[in-house]
């Protein structure tokens, strides 16, 4: 007999103090808190379905610095191939930016490691399924090659030839160095990164070019060097603005996934990136004498792009709806 007491009257009697009570209506009393609220996509108490990235600020900082370094090695290659003898000094400068950027980038990456002393384990294996493994090898090869080429091309004979070859190699490695970080973060389950995987490498490549242009804007250069830096920087800034729109569109194909690029602090950072890069482009094209202004704005824009994408990813990982809809 189901009267709420669950007593089998064939083996027990109902003689207790309150055995006369009429059982309360059970159904009415149950007011469950649904752990899976009704809606298009249920969740488990709105808890994240995936783990957010554990990475800290030094990772987007590396995206920025490594991007500049990679673009610089690539520009160095173009100068080496088509620049002639008069641009040798500029070539050397490009390689130094590449080497220093690679070195600083390595330090930033090690800073984020859980076990910093084991940083060399990154080169313990080569794993083609892991963009981080590929990227580690690219960074570890490109940085010394870039430094070596800058040093060796000062000398003559076979040492110069070795430096020339190293510069070529660094130049070709610089291209993936500037862009692999986009593949690295696309190769995750983080909704906004995964959702913009087709366009993110274009944005990172363009942003690297724009940021290198801005770095060169801040340096004293000769006329012809200045012309190269300016053209490269302007092309980079235009491409950065266009690629940012493409990323935003791809990520927002599922509105919930693209949400962190439109709302909150990350949305503001993303908008700031466009404003800074746009202003930098205007300054670079319309006010050729205000190169410091153009450079500073360009660097701000480039940094905002990397940090906005990074923190948007951290936020989107916390949204189970975005994870499930992806």
């Amino acid at each position: 007999m189901n009267d709420g007491r669950y007593i089998d009257t064939s083996i027990a009697t109902l003689e207790g103090e309150a055995s006369h009570q009429t059982p309360p209506k059970q159904e009415a009393k149950i007011q469950p808190v649904p752990s899976a609220p009704p809606g298009p996509v249920p969740t488990y108490y709105d808890k994240p379905a995936i783990k957010p990235p554990v990475w800290i600020w030094s990772i987007p900082a590396y995206f920025f610095v490594g991007g500049v370094a990679g673009a610089s090695m690539t520009l160095g290659l173009a100068v080496q191939l088509f620049g002639g003898k008069r641009l040798r000094r500029f070539d050397e400068r490009c390689r130094w930016i590449g080497a220093v950027g690679g070195g600083v980038g390595t330090a930033l990456l090690i800073h984020d490691l859980g076990r910093k002393t084991r940083f060399l384990f990154m080169l313990r294996v080569f794993r083609p399924t892991s963009p981080m493994s590929i990227g580690s090898w690219v960074l570890a090869l490109a940085t010394p090659l870039s430094a070596g080429s800058a040093l060796l091309t000062l000398s003559r004979g076979w040492l110069y030839d070795a430096g020339y070859a190293a510069g070529m190699a660094a130049g070709f490695l610089g291209m993936p160095l500037a862009t692999y970080t986009a593949v690295l973060i696309s190769n995750t389950t983080v909704p906004v990164w995964k959702g913009s995987r087709r366009t993110l490498p274009l944005l990172f490549g363009a942003s690297s070019a724009a940021s290198l242009g801005s770095v060169l804007d801040l340096m004293p250069l000769r006329d012809r060097e200045r012309a190269i830096a300016r053209r490269f920087g302007i092309a980079g800034r235009i491409a950065e603005l266009a690629a940012a729109r493409a990323v935003e569109r791809e990520a927002s194909a599922i509105p919930r996934v693209g949400k962190p690029l439109h709302e909150g602090a990350t949305g503001a950072l993303w908008k700031a990136a466009t404003v800074f890069t746009g202003a930098s482009l205007a300054a670079a094209t319309l006010l050729p004498r205000r190169r410091i202004l153009a450079g500073a704005l360009g660097l701000l824009g480039g940094a905002c792009v990397r940090f906005a994408i990074f923190y948007a990813g951290k936020r989107s990982a916390l949204d189970p709806q975005a994870t499930f809809l992806q």
């Binding site: 520009l75 291209m175 092309a235």
Partner: peptide, 14 residues
């Protein structure tokens, strides 16, 4: 594509 673009932009600028 991005790598090719980067190289072309660099060569173009030089």
């Amino acid at each position: 594509m991005a790598s090719a673009g980067l190289l072309l932009a660099a060569i173009g600028a030089v």
